[in-house]
């Protein structure tokens, strides 16, 4: 392989990832649905990356694999950061405190973050995401939800994490 082909492939992967980031943020600002928009943007960036890497490196298999690995690695580091901003209760607590001038009664924080509305909201989100089905006020696992729950239950057991949550 030429001295620069791998560098070019990785640079193209990084550039396409930046394009994905830009599109994701623009969509977010425009109010697009989070998970669906994330996946669509990323899929489009992968397609663009594959075309440009194939064209610039004469279809080198190694370059395509390196580009896919680079993009995949950037994605797995980016997604947790996104969900931290979106869903972390600790982050939401800091934000609430920041907007309230830096202090709030402890009872108010507990009422907000361990009360009925936040549980109802999270159960509804899980149902909308296809992990739970809704029967009146009760929620049951879907096949997808059962698989995820079973997988992590086994991981918790393997790592002896206790109940956690």
């Amino acid at each position: 392989m030429s001295q620069s082909a791998a560098l070019v492939a990785v640079a193209l992967a990084a550039a396409w990832f930046c394009a994905f980031l830009g599109a994701h943020v623009i969509g977010w600002r425009a109010g697009r649905g989070n998970a669906q928009w994330l996946v669509r943007c990323y899929a489009a960036s992968i397609l663009g990356m594959l075309i440009s890497v194939t064209a610039c490196t004469a279809g080198s298999g190694l370059c395509i694999v390196l580009a896919l690995m680079t993009s995949g690695c950037l994605f797995v580091v980016y997604v947790p950061a996104v969900y931290t901003v979106l869903t972390s209760l600790s982050v939401q607590t800091l934000i609430l405190l920041g907007r309230a001038g830096g202090a709030l009664p402890e009872a108010e924080l507990y009422a907000r973050f361990s009360g009925r509305p936040i549980v109802a909201d999270r159960l509804a989100t899980l149902a909308a995401s296809g992990y739970l089905t809704h029967e009146q006020e009760r929620f049951r696992l879907t096949i997808r939800g059962r698989m995820i729950a079973a997988l992590f239950a086994r991981l918790k057991e393997l790592w002896k994490l206790g109940a956690g949550g």
């Binding site: 869903t87 209760l89 999270r122 159960l123 989100t125 899980l126 992990y131 739970l132 929620f139 049951r140 696992l141 939800g145 995820i148 729950a149 992590f152 239950a153 991981l155 918790k156 790592w159 994490l161 109940a163 956690g164 949550g165």
Partner: peptide
């Protein structure tokens, strides 16, 4: 596994 709020609800179910 250790801190996931939604995930823990799925495991509780």
């Amino acid at each position: 596994a250790d801190r996931g709020f939604s995930l823990r609800m799925l495991i509780d179910a």
